[in-house]
Amino acid sequence: MSKVLIVAEHANGKLNPSTAKTVACARQLPDAEIHVAVFADDAGAIATDAAALSGVAKVLLIENPVHANLMAATIAPQLAELGGNYSHLFGPSTTFGKDLMPRTAALLGVNQISDIMDVRGSHSFLRPIYAGNAIVTVEADSKTIVVATVRTASYKAVSGDGDGVIETVSPSAELPSHTRFVELQSGKSDRPDLQTASKVVSGGRAMGSSEGFEIIYKLADALGAAVGASRAAVDAGYVPNEMQVGQTGKIIAPDLYIAIGISGAIQHLTGIKDAGTIVAINKDAEAPIFEVADIGLVGDLFQIVPELEAAISK
């Protein structure tokens, strides 16, 4: 039997969908009892929503003012302490989980598995390496706890109709004061969230400027889609960093991905491998993006995109 503890990710009083996807991965483990740890200042609906995730038996609630901002330095010692009672300790492979889980694994004296994309057995998993150019089967030691992050793009969120119980716990680990939160700058947007949207429209270097990017937003709004970008577009300052899709940005799996003025570098493609349908619009018929696109259209984006937007809005 596997006893799994999952660390919940949340912000602004809401549970992040990455938590429900991590639960989906844990449910692939044979005979798994799944608990979720919620570190928060004031958990409110986060704890009840976590307890309602299908397959979750129990929520461990750790309320402490230091968790007003989730930081690896303060969560890791507590998570490592709680982890002692479990066979598996999972987190999402978001920037939150990637920051936290290795530190926790080190405190537990074990290695960590990054980006689980499939479970083959209680200690056997698949994960991508070399920007997704190879999929490796890994075996973890069966005598020690398995600490891992879950590649959220590989999983569908479990439903929210479960009935887990909530238990307040108070780990005794000493918390450091050497790391202090200053601020979070995030572009407020009414558009769907890039990581969970069913449709995404992305623009690349070809957009030329932040003004040039406007036609991407318009098309996205006509489709009800989230907006993404290539690294080149982010580096050039057309859009903020949180919009980057790819190996070093977000790994996403929308039903529809429209790549506009993006060449299709391997590092970008890593981020969209699991997309349902990929549409590419590019003036260069030889662009590598067409090798993976389900539907390709060669031409000038500054003509095509407004035309497409008008046709969809009709």
């Binding site: 991508p128 150019n133 190879a134 999929i135 089967t137 990929i278 539907i295 390709g296 035309e307 046709a311």
Partner: peptide, 29 residues
């Protein structure tokens, strides 16, 4: 030395098939 995570097999990723090319916005729609 810590106990390593063992890599037991390597496989190429599933390849996406090249799709269709369309000749304009109406065909794309």
């Amino acid at each position: 030395a810590a106990i390593a995570i063992k890599a037991t097999a390597y496989a190429p990723p599933p390849v996406r098939q090249k799709g269709v090319m369309v000749d304009g916005v109406p065909a794309l729609i």
